[in-house]
Computed example of a mutant assay.
Amino acid sequence: MIIGLTGGIGSGKTAAANRFAAAHGIHVVDADQKSRVVVEPGRPALAHIVDRFGEAMLLDDGTLNRAALRETVFAAPEQRQWLEQLLHPLIRDEIITDLHSATSPYALLVSPLLVESGQNSLTSRVIVVDVPETMQLARTVQRDAVPEAQVRAIMQAQAQREERLRHAHDVLTNDSDLAALHAQVDALHARYMQLLERP
């Protein structure tokens, strides 16, 4: 069984995924990490990005300047579409390979764009980490030390809260503290184990 875990920026996806992994030994595949792998130096995707947007997309060590790329693509929707068409199939291949290596009772696919990228087609259930948008904004601005306008642009590009919740089989409400989130994760894990035991 593959379970998708999604939520907007700053919702607490990583905190939830870490609990599944640390407390219950669940194999976690992080789409964000895969998105970094596909643009590593020497990978074709990085060369395509530099061809399109120029050398400013590279840091001094030859790795991708993620901040410069983010600024460029979130300012122009057609550039973001081009980038997504380049990267999504590559990321999907990396994800599938990793999911197939899982040995835990079920695997967790963590992706901020689970619904938007169609990655939810790989999953049998979807968990949404839900949080009020004001909290999302405040957490992300504080965590990433970025301007509020940039966070709002990223939030606009992600599925809206209602849209995400429409795809949810399970919801983790993360508007309290870490202990409250952990308790919800533990309850969900117990439920999934029961589901797996059914013939």
Results as ranks from 00 to 15, higher is better:
D175P: 08
S176L: 13
A47Q: 14
E40Y: 07
P112M: 01
I96V: 15
A23L: 13
Q150N: 12
T134R: 01
A67E: 13
H27V: 00
E133I: 10
D30M: 06
A56M: 07
G7P: 07
A153R: 15
P147V: 09
A76E: 15
D98G: 06
Q119P: 03
P105H: 04
E148C: 14
H182V: 03
T140R: 02
D51P: 11
S124W: 05
A67H: 13
L181H: 04
L114S: 01
L196C: 02
H189E: 11
A145N: 15
D60C: 03
G10C: 00
D175S: 11
L195H: 09
D98A: 13
W82E: 00
V131T: 15
A15P: 13
A16I: 04
R19P: 10
R36A: 08
D186M: 01
A183Y: 00
P105V: 02
V141T: 06
V151N: 09
H189K: 10
Q85F: 02
L114W: 07
D32M: 04
P105Q: 00
E197Q: 15
L178T: 12
A153Q: 14
D130W: 07
A179R: 14
I154G: 08
E116M: 00
L90W: 06
Y106G: 04
E71H: 14
V50E: 02
Q150P: 09
A17W: 09
E163T: 15
V185E: 03
I9V: 14
D51F: 12
A31L: 09
H169L: 07
H169N: 11
L99G: 08
A153C: 04
R80I: 12
S124H: 08
P41E: 07
E94R: 13
A56R: 15
R80P: 13
F20Y: 13
L58Y: 13
L46G: 09
G4N: 03
